[in-house]
Design a protein around this nucleic acid. Structure first.
Lengths: 202, 202
DNA sequence: TCTGAACTTGACCATACGGTCAGGATGGCC
DNA sequence: GGCCATCCTGACCGTATGGTCAAGTTCAGA
């Protein structure tokens, strides 16, 4: 097996196990079993449990950042924020494990990715705040505090991944259907875009 | 020390440690140190780690349910949902540890409190859905899918506890001030209440 | 075919953890 | 004071875990 394949296999297994059990609850043996490899092999590619975990979290952060580019390419708040919500909802649907690992990491005080929060995330956030402030000054949306708007976007979209189990339970122990995911998306978009008074066509 | 005092002391310490380290990462020794008691004493009051954890989660759920009563006592959506947001934001501020433990528990598939999700939470949710549907039929708010509105309320308010560390980092490594908490509350309330077209005075 | 670097793995080790227990302290009550 | 139930705790134990290692296996390239 090539190095790349092996690492991808292990990372995928690790993401699942870390998401389900947390860093402390996850064991290298569990990850090894899920990847179908002997435990010692994991340590060949990733020297320590923490190395492996760090890599998992970094991968998630990358996906997360990519989706965020949509924000800038947009012409106005309805389009930009709408597309951003769609993108983040799609990530919540396709990569719920990653979202959970990220959430757990932050909840525990970000011991591993604190530097990312202080550099990349801070810069990205400030950039987006500028965009929102411009939209506001152009009268294309209400004068909302951009920070709290961003928090709301993160919270609502990631909730569908992080609290997916609760949502499924309340949905009669059934995963959301395509139609229900669409309903979720349009509910979130509808409420937020109306709530901030987004006007793309002034 | 009375039984009640000792248990309260241990539960408080346990809540903190479970929130910071997760169930798997928490150790009885850590909890004991934080409570200022020898480890063996913890096992006198709580036979196993899981017993202790279960008790912590149940306590959180109780607080959570109490705050939810506000919903019904209200006259209309703006008042009811507004008060509910205030109450949940206040819990996020005062009991961030509890919120984190709850979030982690749900993220890991609710191994300990699944029965609560299926009984109490389901009933509470259905009750609130009825209230919201009544408000809609009375024309006091837009025809929103009540479920997704509830998810949005939970997500946005709990985000300030669960992702408090991230928010503090983006706030220049400073805890939110009173003014900032008020800004957060009114931002959330403003966007959501406008977003659902809440009209208490038709 | 030979060589060596990359890869694989069963067996092993030190440690840390949840949990036990026996013996002792405490304090209310007669 | 004497008795008893409750409470407290240092020392201990079995186990599971992260990590190591030495002995292989594989395979590309000379």
């Amino acid at each position: 097996m090539r190095r790349q394949e092996a690492e991808a296999l292990i990372l995928s297994a690790a993401e699942k196990v870390f998401a389900e059990a947390g860093f402390g609850g996850a064991t290298m043996q569990l990850i090894a079993d899920m990847a179908g490899l002997p435990k010692a092999n994991l340590h060949y590619y990733f020297p320590t449990k923490e190395t492996l975990y760090r890599q998992v979290v970094q991968n998630i952060f990358q996906i997360w950042l990519q989706a965020a580019d949509i924000f800038d390419q947009a012409d106005g708040p309805a389009e930009g924020i709408g597309a951003y919500i769609d993108a983040k909802m799609e990530i919540s649907r396709r990569h719920p494990e990653g979202s959970k690992v990220w959430a757990a990491e932050v909840m525990h005080g970000a011991p591993v990715i604190q530097d990312y929060l202080e550099t990349t995330l801070t810069e990205w956030t400030n950039g987006r705040i500028s965009v929102i402030e411009r939209w506001i000054s152009e009268g294309r949306m209400d004068p909302i505090d951009p920070r709290h708007l961003l928090y709301m976007l993160w919270a609502t979209t990631q909730h569908y991944a992080d609290f997916g189990h609760q949502i499924e339970t309340l949905n009669g122990d059934t995963a959301l259907s395509d139609a229900q995911w669409n309903a979720a998306k349009s509910s979130v978009k509808g409420i937020i875009l109306k709530g901030i008074g987004a006007k793309d066509h002034v």
